[in-house]
Structure formats: C-alpha cells, structure tokens
C-alpha cells in the first residue's frame, strides 16, 4: 500500500492530509487486500490535488505513475509502436496545460483517459492527413527547402515563426524544418530533451494561434 498523500510535501493542506489518513485507515479496516486499483486511483487523485496547489514532488510522482497507464490508453488507438511514446509525451504536456480543468472532487482517471484518447485521435488524424498528402505527391514535385518560404502559406508560417520567442522558434525549427530527432535537437540547443519538447509544444500552440488569427 502506497503512502498516498501523507507527508508528501509541505504544500499539502490539512484537508488533504486528513483525507489521506482517513482513507488509509478506512481501507485498512474495511477493504480486503488486493484492491490496488482503487487505492492507486485515490492516491493519484490526491497527488493531483496537491499538484494543483503547486506541489512539484507530488506532481512528478503522479506523472511518473501515470505514464504506463497513459501508454496503455494510447496503445489502444495508435498502432505504430514508435509513435506511442511521442503521443504519451503529448498527453503529459496536455495534462500539464489542462491541469486546472480537473475538478478535485471528481475521479482522475476518466479525465486522464479523455486527454489520452483525444491526443491519440489527433495523432491518428495527423498521420492519415500526412499519409494522404504523401500519397498525392510525387517525390519530384516536392519543393526544395530553400523554396518553401516562397508560397503564400509558407510566408505566413515564416512571419508567425518570427513572432515566436527565441527558445520556441529554435525548438520548432530544429524539429520540424531541419528534421532533427528530439535528442539531436536537444543537444544542438543545449537543453534536456524534455525541455526541448516542452518548448516545441508551446511553439506549436503559439503557431497554431498565430496562423489561425492570420487566416481569420
């Protein structure tokens, strides 16, 4: 049985501590052994509440324990094994940016499952679109990289890229325009792969907003 929220960090308020201790005592008294899944769900819920209050330790434990679960949900929808880890990381980023949408009194897993499912659906759509585009294009018809900025859409993209903060622009450029792997791009930028991925994710969101505004 895990420690749940007890003594996890200084930021947990009394209600969470009491809640956790009560739950532990209650489960020890009433529940037969082996109800691990329920205990785990309660523990995660408790950690998420602490994370919403800024407890980084609880948050790191939560994400670490959630990762295999997230991979499992993603695997249900993404067939490509190589893409599973990328989508799982996208899910972690989405959990991070949407953490305020979790309601502390509600179960955590349906919330996580929906985010993971949405990220998987997004990935599948992108994959299908890209496959369709590749199918339509002959290799010779692809423009050379130096000519990419000449088209009207690309000019918009270049303008939007220019408006990104330096760190995000670098991450997007290295990953998407130069086609480096996350590891290579992180080495080039001199940051950890996680930090690079975070910057790129923010860059994609900002680009999407900027391009959407330009189109409308």
């Amino acid at each position: 049985m895990g420690p749940m929220c007890v003594g996890l960090g200084p930021d947990l308020d009394r209600r969470d501590r009491v809640y956790s201790r009560d739950r532990i005592l209650e489960s020890e008294r009433q529940r037969p052994m082996g109800n691990e899944r329920e205990e785990r769900a309660e523990r995660w819920q408790c950690w998420m509440r602490a994370a919403q209050k800024g407890d980084a330790e609880a948050y790191q434990r939560l994400l670490t324990e959630l990762l295999p679960y997230v991979r499992g949900v993603v695997r249900g929808r993404v067939r490509d094994d190589a893409a599973v880890e990328d989508v799982a990381q996208d899910v972690l980023l989405r959990i991070h940016t949407a953490r305020h949408t979790y309601h502390p009194e509600r179960p955590l897993l349906p919330w996580v499952r929906t985010i993971a499912r949405n990220a998987s659906i997004d990935h599948s759509r992108r994959w299908a679109r890209e496959r369709g585009r590749q199918g339509e294009m002959e290799p010779d018809a692809l423009p050379a990289p130096e000519r990419l900025a000449e088209g009207p859409i690309s000019r918009g993209l270049v303008r939007a890229l220019d408006r990104l903060p330096e760190s995000q622009r670098e991450a997007v450029t290295l990953l998407k325009l130069e086609g480096l792997s996350v590891k290579e791009a992180a080495l080039r930028a001199g940051v950890s792969p996680g930090a690079l991925k975070l910057r790129a994710h923010r860059g994609y969101n900002a680009l999407r907003d900027l391009l959407g505004r330009e189109r409308s």
Partner: peptide
C-alpha cells in the same frame, strides 16, 4: 489497457516529467 504496457521509454519521458514538475505553478481549478 494499462496492464498491457511495457517500459519502452528511452528516458525522454522522464526528462519531460522532471521539466514539467520543475516549472509547476499552482492553478485555480475550474
């Protein structure tokens, strides 16, 4: 689903988790 999962991470996800935890700020739930 989660029972089928195997550890396939090459370390990048752990990096990302550390990064996310490092920059965590309190949020007001909806």
């Amino acid at each position: 689903n989660e029972d089928r999962s195997e550890p396939v991470d090459d370390g990048r996800s752990e990096d990302l988790i550390r990064e996310l935890a490092r920059e965590l700020e309190p949020v007001q739930p909806l």
